[in-house]
């Protein structure tokens, strides 16, 4: 089955060439020229991944991203102006899973998409499909998390981040480790991806995100997940 990519990009030439190149990589591509079109298309024909240019003519890309996040956990890759702009953090906070910068090449993009579409990584078949950390119950196979029996709505990336932390319960996971396991980046990946996703994860799994009791920062080292007992 072909993976389905929704391409939200205002420049027609870039849109066309990316469609051609992504189709050549084996994806099925739907195009949208504006944010509104993009949201409509998202509902009409839900994609596996959204590629979203942050500089759109009608609405700004952040609003579109928040619009997507209101009712979808689909992975979103944003196209930002540059890696060190405020856009990166703002886009991630708006709900994007990853980002790429122009000039972007379909081959790289394809690698990013594949990384985001991976299932939560299990290290072996025999591993338990269910992880419990205090009041959090994680069904690895189903991709669901419950807190005291209530279903939490996590994006795929947030879920994989939580699973990675839960597999190392009580131990510190470095940012580099998380970047590699969750995003498929190497040592030089952008650690802001981890930091912002941790913040997003806290707003969902913590009762008081300002005083996290589960997802704990180990200053200068990384993050760890702890049960309140431990």
């Amino acid at each position: 089955m072909k993976r389905h990519v929704l391409l939200v990009e205002d420049d027609p030439r870039v849109r066309r060439v990316l469609r051609l190149a992504l189709e050549d990589e084996g994806y099925q591509v739907a195009e949208a020229a504006t944010g509104c079109d993009g949201l409509r298309s998202l509902h009409a024909d839900p994609p596996d991944v959204v590629l979203l240019d942050l500089m759109l003519p009608d609405t700004d890309g952040f609003a579109v991203c928040r619009g997507i996040r209101r009712d979808s956990a689909v992975p979103v890759i944003m196209v930002t102006a540059r890696t060190d702009s405020h856009d990166v953090v703002a886009g991630l906070e708006a709900g994007a899973d990853d980002y790429v910068t122009k000039p972007l090449v379909a081959k790289e993009l394809s690698a990013r998409i594949r990384a985001l579409l991976r299932r939560a990584q299990g290290s072996s078949e025999s591993e338990t499909p269910r992880l419990v950390v205090d009041d959090l119950e994680i069904e690895v196979e189903e991709g669901t998390v419950r807190r005291d029996g209530d279903l939490l709505s996590l994006t795929r990336t947030e879920f994989r981040l939580l699973v990675e932390l839960a597999r190392h319960e009580g131990r510190v996971c470095s940012r580099e480790h998380l970047l590699e396991r969750v995003w498929g980046y190497g040592y030089f990946g952008d650690s802001r991806l981890v930091d912002v996703h941790i913040r997003r994860l806290r707003t969902k799994v913590e009762r008081d995100p300002a005083n996290p009791r589960h997802v704990i920062t180990a200053r200068g080292l990384g993050y760890r997940l702890v049960g309140t007992g431990g």
Binding site: D11, V14, V17, L20, A21, P103
Partner: peptide, 17 residues
């Protein structure tokens, strides 16, 4: 360089194809 990035994207992907 900013302005060059959009045409560059088109050219790079076309060349890659």
């Amino acid at each position: 360089s900013h302005e060059l990035r959009t045409p560059l994207t088109t050219m790079l992907n076309s060349a890659e194809l």
